[in-house]
Nucleic acid binder design. Structure first.
Length: 584
DNA sequence: GCCGTTTTCGGCCCGACTGTTTTCAGTCG
């Protein structure tokens, strides 16, 4: 049996936290399980491997007990205390806590003990029969609130729980922020929250503003075409919903507290908790309203974020790093990495043309890359069996290579690589012969089919492709689609190890619904010594702009320009390649 | 359950909102 992945271990610890919470454990114990789960999820190496060596306790938030429970999970496939609690509490109780807003573990437990409510369906029946209001601690109002929450959850369905991917959220949120900024009543307007941290997806948009006429600015939200409706409006701000269903929360604050509010609402929750815990140890209390000093009893209000961090002994931290993954310690030490920027990118090693499923011709793509200032572009149309039509037969590929090289010869200022995005077959072999692959300048190997072959087989498949001497890089290594599809089961740690060992590059695919590798995986790969690529996977000339989302993930992975291979000038990039440079 | 410039016990981030048990617990972000 393969080791559980970090995600699986984290899920087990989260479940244990949920169960202990239902069991009435003190909140700090529950929080400890959640923190442990987060530490495992964010770990850059296999936690199963660490635990086996007794080293999981090196992760912040993992102590002796959790270390032992993880080992038991690895050895037996289960944690005994979880099994015992599962027998005590039906799974429906956890379902209610997760699915019904306002229903936490305490109230769910009360309904279970008092009325035997053990599922969402049973809760619906009990509210309809007005049984809930009879229970001590609940009233008519509570029953109505629960019924409304249940109806809303049913209305939304599982789809409604989805978060909005970052590119869509910013396409809506950035123009809204700009429109508010242009309003005569506005002074400052900034997007906060996970949108500002450039997370994979966002739940809602938080806007923090200062204004010379707060009420006028709050009213202005309603005038923006993207905004469908606005609720209560006051000098403190307004709440609204866009036509796409994205919630907007505009908060208008005094200029001398703008820094406190922006810092607070940028988050993340984990970052803010760590920030405050560290502050408490030094007699300071941080909230969205200021920094309270125990000694003087005075609250420092900060007009800028820089002032907040400075008061607490930190250099300003880029929002992309504020995930509680060591950024506070690094900031205090003056050791924050100089993060990569989109302007650092000098070439794109994954693009498509009309030869396969791209929308633009070879020449259009090459000229667009040149205009963008790139020094090199790999043209990597799909191979024979990628599964979506437009396949390039071996004969087609030979002719395509000739066209790429002919264009390269007559186009100054950019080097074109005749490449291919070669499909990795289920057994790990590639769907062109080695003879043909050897004639190419660049090969990206990607999995596009047969996702459900199981973790062991998928890992073997990808490691084999990674070890192939003619594979320069692995494309979108996990196959995830943000908010739509999980990664196929694969031991990405084994792929990272193989890539580091063989000098194969791993891609951060910049397509906004992919961003694959993700931030945690890319950080782990870079730490393991893997050369990272950030590639647009452009299928049109406009798609080169997608590089932005890949760079966002690279920044969230703590990557510098030096960690990313395609920030190099051509000669330096060429020297990093696994395959011998093509003859000139 | 974790953790230590309060080191092996006794704490553990902060504030808003809601409704009910009427003085505060539960939930959320």
């Amino acid at each position: 049996m393969p080791d559980p992945t970090n995600a699986q271990i984290a899920a087990a610890l989260d479940e244990l936290g949920d169960l202990y919470e239902l069991d009435g454990a003190i909140v700090h114990r529950v929080v400890a399980y959640r923190e442990g789960a987060r530490a495992v999820r964010d770990a850059s190496v296999s936690v199963a491997g660490l635990a086996r060596e007794g080293r999981a306790i090196e992760l912040p938030g993992i102590g002796k007990t959790l270390q032992e429970k993880i080992v038991t999970l690895i050895d037996t496939g289960a944690i005994p205390s979880a099994q015992r609690l599962r027998e005590k509490f039906p799974a429906g109780l956890v379902d209610i806590v997760h699915a019904v807003p306002g229903m936490g573990p305490k109230r769910v437990r009360a309904l279970y003990d008092g009325l035997g409510i053990d599922s969402i369906e049973a809760l619906e029946a009990a509210t309809a029969a007005h049984e809930v209001r009879k229970l001590r601690g609940f009233g008519a109002k509570a029953e109505e609130t629960i019924a409304a929450a249940l109806a809303a959850a049913a209305e939304r369905g599982p789809e409604g729980q989805r978060r909005t991917i970052l590119s869509r959220a910013l396409a809506i949120g950035e123009p809204i922020a700009a429109a508010l900024r242009d309003h005569p009543a506005a002074d400052r307007v900034e997007l906060a929250g996970s949108a500002r941290r450039l997370a994979d997806s966002v739940k809602d948009l938080d806007l923090i503003a200062t204004a010379n006429d707060p009420l006028a600015l709050a009213r202005a939200l309603h005038e923006i075409p993207a905004v469908q409706s606005v609720g209560t409006v006051s000098e403190a701000g307004a709440r609204g919903v866009t036509h796409t269903g994205l919630k907007i929360d505009l908060k208008i604050v005094a200029p001398d507290q703008f820094g406190n509010l922006l810092q607070h609402f940028t988050g993340s929750k984990a970052h803010n908790m760590q920030l405050r815990e560290a502050a408490v140890r030094r007699g300071l209390h941080v909230s969205e309203y200021g920094v309270l000093d125990d000694e003087t009893g005075e609250t420092l209000r900060c007009p800028t974020e820089e002032a907040v961090y400075e008061r607490l002994g930190y250099a300003w931290i880029p929002p992309e790093l504020r995930e509680g993954r060591g950024e506070l310690e690094a900031s205090a030490r003056g050791a924050l990495p100089p993060l990569i920027d989109t302007a650092d990118i000098r070439g794109d090693l994954h693009s498509h043309t009309t030869a396969s499923d791209g929308k633009a011709t070879l020449e259009e793509m090459a000229r667009a890359a040149l205009v963008r200032g790139y020094e090199y572009l790999a043209v990597t149309d799909h191979s024979a069996t990628h599964g979506f039509g437009n396949e390039v037969s071996p004969g087609d590929l030979r002719r395509h290579m000739e066209r790429v090289r002919a264009l390269d010869a007559r186009l100054d200022g950019i080097r074109l690589l005749a490449g291919s995005e070669v499909n990795v077959l289920p057994d790990g072999s590639l769907d062109y012969d080695d003879d043909l692959l050897a004639q190419l300048d660049w090969v990206v190997a990607s999995v596009h089919t047969s996702f459900r072959i199981g973790e062991a087989a998928m890992t073997e498949r990808m490691v084999r492709a990674t070890e192939h001497p003619l594979v320069d890089a692995i494309g979108h290594p996990t196959g995830r689609k943000i908010e739509r599809r999980d990664s196929y089961p694969v031991d990405i740690g084994a792929v990272i190890e193989a890539a580091a060992r063989t000098g194969t590059m791993l891609e951060i695919n910049a397509a906004p619904d992919r961003r694959d590798l993700d931030d945690v995986q890319a950080r782990a790969a870079a730490q393991a010594g893997v050369r990272i690529l950030v590639n647009s996977d452009a299928h049109s000339t406009g798609n080169f702009e997608l590089m932005r989302w890949g760079v966002a993930t690279a920044r969230r992975a703590w990557l510098t320009a030096g960690d990313v291979a395609n920030t190099r000038p051509w000669a330096a990039f060429d020297a990093l390649r696994k395959r011998k440079p093509a003859p000139a």
